[in-house]
Design a protein around this nucleic acid. Structure first.
Lengths: 114, 114
DNA sequence: CGCTGATATCAAAGTATGCTGATGTGGGGT
DNA sequence: ACCCCACATCAGCATACTTTGATATCAGCG
């Protein structure tokens, strides 16, 4: 038996989720992701939007591509990028779990007897 | 005139939001935050839960404290930590904006005429 | 067919980040 | 008063990350 748990129910280990947040932890990469969430764009657009150098943009796009959160489709001389479906879904779920409680956090255990 | 925009409506610049995601970008820090989202804990609990060294935990708690996402309350020899109210709220909003569309991303502009 | 523009890749450099060991502090129990 | 425990701080090290300039690729156009 390898794994009978449905994908959605399978817990994602902290390292994997942290890696998703790490993708959003850079200001420039965050702007790229937020831009691609609105519309498809090619590299040159992102260069114009962000004001960053071509090499820098290309680098971040590779990072996002290798993390499977953006998809690049070569079309002639251009490469159109868009957000991968379901990208950051797990990160969103975890963040909702963190923020949700809202109420005062309970103190469930006595001081220091792990 | 200085600023008449209500706090909730004021846009948060990418660097500030990226900094929030950066707090969650480390696996250990993510575990700490998720633990504190459930219940108040003191340093020794987090040491036991995570298996990390005291110094490491203390370091991350200082980072989280200085970012105003956790609150520490000294009580005798112990320091009880809890998530600050409203912590990561802006990060959550931005992530919802990124994930929300769901549908296929439109291609709004022509190739490269910024 | 050679040139230009869009983009990817690579190596170098500077900076930031996390972990660790040593050390300081301060409360509580004996 | 003394000692132990919970916790914080600091400096050093190793590693990872971002940016940049140089260079390669590759499609379309004259």
């Amino acid at each position: 038996m390898v794994n009978v748990m449905p994908l959605e129910a399978m817990p994602v280990s902290p390292p994997a989720v942290a890696a998703q947040f790490a993708l959003l932890a850079d200001p420039l990469r965050l702007r790229i992701v937020e831009s691609l969430a609105r519309e498809q764009l090619c590299t040159c657009h992102l260069i114009a939007i962000t004001g960053a150098k071509q090499t820098t943009i290309s680098n971040h796009l590779r990072i996002l591509r290798e993390a499977d959160v953006v998809l690049g489709e070569a079309e002639g001389r251009f490469t159109w990028y868009r957000l991968a479906p379901g990208a950051f879904a797990e990160g969103l779920r975890r963040l909702q779990g963190i923020t949700k409680p809202g109420e005062a956090t309970p103190r469930l255990r006595p001081a220091c007897a792990p």
